[in-house]
Nucleic acid binder design. Sequence first.
DNA 1: TATCCACCGGAATTTATGGAAG
DNA 2: CTTCCATAAATTCCGGTGGATA
Length: 363
Amino acid sequence: MITDPRVFRDDHLPRELKHREAEIEDLSHALDPALAGRPAADVLLAGPSGVGKTALARHTLGKLDQFATVAHTHIQCLGESTTDVLQAALDDLPGHSATDAASVDDLRVALREAVDQPAILVLDEADSLPETDVLDVLDDVPLVSFIAVVHDPQRWLSRAPDAVRRAVSGPIQLGRYGVDELSSILRARANVGLRPSVVSDDQLRGIADEVAGVARSGIQVLRAAAEVASERGHARIHDTDIEDAYERAQHRIRRSKLYSLTFHHHVLYGLVHEAGEVPAGELHDRYDAVGEQMYYGRERTPVGRRSRRNKLRKLVEYELVEAVGDSKSRVYRVVDESVTPSLDSGMCVESVESDDAGNTTSF
DNA sequence: TATCCACCGGAATTTATGGAAG
DNA sequence: CTTCCATAAATTCCGGTGGATA
């Protein structure tokens, strides 16, 4: 059924990016100066999960390569520290002799020395950059510019250094795809990655509609549907295969997000999952009650309430937990009951599995 | 309505960790 | 080995918000 698995991977970049012409144009425009040896503009690229922010950046940089060689590199910022990010930039950009074990200041200096041509960094998942040190340094290296890929541009801007806030252009805002748009994208993937005529246009429209225009989800559903159909010995994809595929795909995506988080997050997720829906105060009480034994025998110890709020916020960002209401009336609940916690308040069995979907689970 | 209380989240501060210098 | 320093994580402090209660 699946003839080319590559086209269903998260990191697959199709030759043509459909329905993003205007955004490609905007981004190209911002990068234009680099073609003439001048620094490109810093750009903010915003939009919800899975609608092609990263693909847009990669695609546009690829186009740039056709006209001139402009150094660029892609950096995954999620969970990385300031030095990790800067070190990655230094390693991937041309023209530097390997330096390691460097402080932020050393890296700043090294970058200034190494870069003598315009260079562009794609800062993926830049929401999670630990504070603004990275941006301060980049602001200090004139030839280096960045494309910051974020979910919430207002929040990002409010935390950015003043100089960056003034200079950055955009945000280029990507929305969810319409049903027509996404089904044509899915059709293109099916044509390349699946045997001919195994899925109908109506079925693709159904998928596009159900995933609410989130391309990543749509593509994973299509892939899972083909897998399910194969497992059942179907020659074509049946509607029932798609129904079951939806579960499988969403479940996979969510589960790998959960696994990428720390033990603290797992404890809190487990408590919310167990309760179904729980007011903030009660959640904290439960944490206090079972915390000691949950953490027993681990290198980590229970955290205070303020830190828990940060963990919970992360769970909300990852769309694993929903927070309804503000302040006093805040209630937490899990988004998908079927994503079961890796531990419960009794035993602490944690099985760490790799993401078998072959995806870099970003969000 | 006025007041209180619990929670949220920004900012400042403290603590823990790892790596380099002496 | 000890000291010093940088960084990340956690905590403390606190103003803001909005239900609950008198």
